[in-house]
Design a binder for these strands. Sequence first.
DNA 1: TTCATTTAGTGTTGATTTTACACAAAATTA
DNA 2: TAATTTTGTGTAAAATCAACACTAAATGAA
Lengths: 229, 229
Amino acid sequence: MKIPQNIKVAVDAVVFGYEQKELSVLLIKRGVEPFKGSWALPGGLVLENESLEDAVQRELQEETGVTIDYLEQLYTFGIPGRDPRNRVVSVTYFALVSPNNFKISADTDADEVQWFSINELPELAFDHDKILSIALKRLKSKINYQPIGFELLKKEFPFSDLEHLYQTILNRKIDRRNFRKKILSFGILTETDKIHQPSSGRPAKLFKFNAQKYKELQKSGFHFEIKFA
Amino acid sequence: MKIPQNIKVAVDAVVFGYEQKELSVLLIKRGVEPFKGSWALPGGLVLENESLEDAVQRELQEETGVTIDYLEQLYTFGIPGRDPRNRVVSVTYFALVSPNNFKISADTDADEVQWFSINELPELAFDHDKILSIALKRLKSKINYQPIGFELLKKEFPFSDLEHLYQTILNRKIDRRNFRKKILSFGILTETDKIHQPSSGRPAKLFKFNAQKYKELQKSGFHFEIKFA
DNA sequence: TTCATTTAGTGTTGATTTTACACAAAATTA
DNA sequence: TAATTTTGTGTAAAATCAACACTAAATGAA
């Protein structure tokens, strides 16, 4: 005799943002038990007729109002007991948001959505700390072999922003000359004619990531890959 | 008004084996509709109280009798309509089997389980061709940066087996001297005192993968990584 | 107005890694 | 014993990586 399966499917997203040389994660404060009042990753149950990706986008829209620039599946968690109420299998996603879309929508309760610096995280509900740590690992590893760092910057950015981004995420110094040389050698950045005036110091040219060019290069076997001194 | 969610959770596994310089995948012939009579990846619904990994192991045991040497989560598929009956979210796994465990258990119906060379695949049920192609991509990419190739060989193997394995999976020639030099330089192989007599030609020393050593090296920052001419 | 401070921008050299490449050694079979 | 098969090995040129420091252009303060 078979017992009918009753497992709920949820999605959760680890959304990263970067501003002011700080890497942050988007969290929501839970309004219901269990873990009422705790911070958690945005997410929720998948609806009957929507794809997993649609579910993530919908939940992010509903809960945070934030627009996502990059989204990929991270990992699926399904150990019985990870949710104290029911069996929930959670498909988690990894998302990046550019500073342009950093702001939290006005129609969400600001009390309940917040960016947290990766260095000052609160305790998280469920197994969300584990999910977050896997996402962070993915980010740290992936920026080395895929040009996803640009998703965390404005469309046009001074080179030093990219440099600082890598240093922040990888948490170490990078040789400026070697880094610039390497990235520029890929030929996937376009120099704009605009310049950026920092609060003090020499003005900087603005660059933008050329996704079109990147795709072409990919087709001819090019592989984005960074190694550091 | 909320409609209660009714989504089933399944697991499916792409199991790779390697023998006679051929890479193969383990498939089962479906005994029930839909796709009755078609070949498909082994898998099935997750039980109420088992973890996803346990579900994969159980299904593989039940359906194929094959013992798995390496298992990792691959990707989760959840587009509505991928199963014509119900909404099914399938968490897929990627598995490797060594030739020692290659044989299909006697208590399964041999008619319904079979190894297929990656070059002579039948049509597959559901979206299993897509799953398989992602698994293959993963395998091709992962053998370059993780020592998982050994899971597809016997515990003790002549060096040329490793060489052929890489050539088969990557589908290209590899320089024998450079390959050997690189792999040996890692220090994760132990030379046994046994030798292997090929059907003709010079006898070869047998090596084995030293998982212990690999773990130690990993801790001190070593990273398995292969690049080829 | 110039001096101190801040950030952007740039090349060279030595060390290391990668690539290309060919022949001798040990066994089997005819 | 000659032909065939597979193992095992070194070197040199090319490419990449790693280390390293000063000048340029702006701002703000003295």
